[in-house]
Amino acid sequence: MSGFDKTVNSYAEALDGLQDGMTIIAGGFGLCGIPEGCIARIREMGVRDLTIISNNCGVDDFGLGLLLEHKQIKKMVSSYVGENALFEEQLLNGELEVELTPQGTLAEKMRAGGAGIPAFYTATGYGTPVGEGKEVREFNGRQYILEEAVTGDFAIVKGWKADRYGNVIYRHTAQNFNPMAATAGKITVVEVEELVEPGELDPTGIHTPGIYVDRLVQGTFEKRIEQRTITE
C-alpha cells in the first residue's frame, strides 16, 4: 500500500484488528448490497460480543444471519429484524439484545456519525416507545426527540466499482445504507465487484469519495434474492 492506494489483497488484511466486543456498522438493506465477503471473514475469525449496526440481520444461512450461528453478535441496532429463526431464538433466550431504531433515524445516525454531528432532533418516534427517555424539544410548535449519532470501530461496505484511491460507486438500490456506513467507521472496509484504475470513474458520479475509505478489497458475490417477484 502506498499513498492513496487503498487496496489490500485479502479479506484477512481488510479486517485485521477486528476484536471481540467491537462495534461494526454494516451497509445493506435486506440481502441487497450487503458486504458478503466481510461477513464471511468475520465468521471465520470467530470474534464475539459484537455490536452490529445494520438495518436488518440477514436470513438464517446468509448475510449477518451467519454470525448468529456461532453467537458472535451481542447486540443489533436495526429497524427490522426477525427474518430468521436463529434471531428469534437467541432474542428469546436473552443471548441477543436488539435496539429497534426507525429506518430513517438509523440512516441519519450513521450520516451524522460520519459528519461529526453528535446528535440531531427528529419528529420520528415522538410519542412512541422509541421516544421514551429521550430529550424532547419544541421547534415551531412541533415536538422533536434528540437522537444520538453512531460510529463504528469498523464499517463494512459493499460497492459496485471503485478505483484504487477508494472512490466508490454503488449499483441501483444496492446503494441503500452503504454510503452512510462508509463515512462512520474508524476503519472503513469497502468490498467491490470491480476494481478500476484512478481516472476510469467519472469524478462527478462518485458516491463515496476515497477520503472515507481505509481498505479496499475486490470480492465475488452471490447476491442472493430475498423476495423473487416476477411479471409473467
Partner: peptide, 11 residues
C-alpha cells in the same frame, strides 16, 4: 408477540 421492528413506518 415477536416484535420485528418498525422499519420506515415511524419516519
Amino acid at each position: 408477540k415477536l416484535i420485528k421492528g418498525m422499519g420506515g413506518a415511524m419516519d
